[in-house]
Design a protein around this nucleic acid. Structure first.
Lengths: 205, 205, 205, 205
DNA sequence: TATGAATGAGCGTTCATTCAT
DNA sequence: GATGAATGAACGCTCATTCAT
């Protein structure tokens, strides 16, 4: 009805479909979203979906890829590796949270969906690993005197996990981006130890 | 033979069913697990499941409740609020990770499953909030000179998020509990700012 | 409606389903028959079909097996191996054609259907081989002075092929059983070489 | 490259399409062959198929017609009606089996396919009738003293049926053409009655 | 002439759920 | 209390067929 029946070049249709799919998946979840619903949302017929993407699983995979790509690109674009460490941290956190905030419907839930099906564990893990890698390198380059054996990778896992959790709050409107960013920066930068009169405890294995 | 027409007291049957359900859900996911499979695993008939739990969704909810309860109880039991702050942190982190490590099949996947279905968002959020609350209070009580306006709750969100991310690594066998715990404690306690010879960077928001 | 919704023991339902399936397959062919149509014909729901037979292919296979079994049993039952050769031939031919004639809707078309799908080539060939074997042994035992090296098996193939072709005519009503039988018997017994000096057998329908 | 936008005369295109269709139908069967597959094999676009043949059914019908025509022509060409009866039989049988043997992929399977779909029963029957007629006339002309009322037509049905069955064995490689031919000739000429007193006709390969 | 783009319609299959016993 | 038997409702997917260019 609304503009539907035109002959569109392949590339355009592809985006149209992915848009619809991301939209539906993010709202209703992978299993609760039928191909019929996606086709309807995209204002095309179901066979088109199959012609372009082969199967529901592949369609979802394509969504995942696109959104993941966009996300990583967006965050990476904001980061300037020549900044001093703390600025770097700040920029990254803000970029991360801002992206989620702006694209909440799409990415955050998509991400959530993907986590739940064995079939996408691989893609998700891969995507998450890309982010973790990015953060890991960021940490490494930002740490002047790294203790030998520091597991930057696992540290990145923790940071990203924290980021995702906070981002979820942001994406559901329960927190404001910049406040959340500030809180994370402080938390990660200074640690819990205590502020003014910091007396470092002797590291205990 | 196995199962047969035994008359079992309600409480026993309930656990038997929940055990089977948790087991199946955790291995195959919510949608990929059929009521048939659960009934078979529990060695009872399908109508029993419906008699006791009404629907698949409610059954899953019951699983969630039980596992969440066990988890919270277990972690809380290990915590001694009279400990000094850092010990408290350490105890909590270790308790958290240990539980996940020990009950990976059950809880971690269950948790993962629940996250992905709109239907359980509520239960999951509720559960997570209980944990966040716990951690939030922990933080509050452990901080000697809280800056006014510190959002302990959001800080707890970040910590729990980090914990979950690390826990996932632990649960998939990609990390060892105590190493992961130590890393988290150090990270959270000291922050990224710098370790031994901390020289604060100039930029300080 | 018409007697449908009763709780029937497994064995009864199985026959009910096979009856319906054979009926529909024979009338409309394998591909043109939908599981819906079979379920409707059997006055049961589609899931029952799947519960009992697993898939359309397996259901068709079960039809094939049953009908093949009935056919072979029926023909074999009529044959008395102690008869003299020509009587044996006559009995066999009549038994063969009579069965087809009586069960035309079921077997002949089922047989025809099966031939066309790669998936059933095996079953059909197996069934046909059983018949060919039977006929082959019959020929062997009925031939007094077999020429060395006589390929009774291939001869049986030819006879069965002829029988099938004639049977098809019978099954479509284009020929009458006993006339057709007589013709086949004469043809096979005397051959084409020449008739004149033949002494007609007593039995003449 | 291959195919492209060539402008070909109608007749050439038609053969190109039929070749492709026969090829695909014979390998995969009627239902298992999609119009897409045929178009791809013919290296033309699907609308062309529809332009030339209107529908899948009609396309298949055209295949049937062409192949049937070729078959009948081929067999008829080999037959010399002035030959003595037994030679005639031999020639016909050999022509029949040889054609099948040489064109197994195309015709035998096509034939098999057609038999199974109600939609083509008519065409197939028509084709088979042409062959039966041919054989019937052959029999009639070859029989010196026909008993009054001899049903040459039905006899032809039997012979053709036998031929088809043996041909199938030949086409699957389970029998050699000339051996099979010899066997059929002997069987039909002499009959099963018994050999001993047989006076072999002069021609004996 | 020739085709890429598009779809209506239908099929095999599965599953949560409920009677009747 | 416990279950074998049964089904309504969907869903993923494919295919013959047709426009619009």
């Amino acid at each position: 009805m609304a503009g539907g029946t035109k002959r569109l070049p392949r590339a355009v249709r592809e985006q149209q479909m992915l848009d619809a799919a991301v939209q539906m998946f993010s709202v209703n979840g992978y299993h609760e979203t039928s191909m019929d619903a996606i086709a309807a949302q995209a204002e095309i017929s179901k066979p088109m979906l199959y012609l372009y993407y082969g199967s529901k699983e592949e369609l979802f995979g394509a969504c995942l890829d696109r959104e993941l790509g966009r996300f990583v690109d967006s965050v990476r674009a904001d980061i300037d590796f020549t900044q001093p460490a703390k600025d770097l941290l700040r920029t990254a956190v803000v970029a991360f949270l801002s992206y989620i905030d702006t694209n909440r419907a799409s990415w955050m839930v998509l991400y959530t969906q993907a986590t739940s099906s064995q079939a996408f564990a691989h893609t998700v893990r891969e995507g998450r690993d890309r982010i973790v890698d990015l953060v890991g390198r960021l940490l490494q380059s930002g740490t002047r005197n790294p203790e030998p054996g520091t597991d930057f990778d696992m540290m990145a896992v923790a940071l990203v996990g924290a980021g995702e959790a906070v981002a979820t709050r942001v994406s559901t409107g329960d927190a404001e981006v910049h406040e959340a960013a500030e809180l994370m920066i402080n938390l990660f930068w200074r640690g819990l130890k205590g502020r003014p009169a910091d007396i470092p405890s002797r590291a205990d294995a």
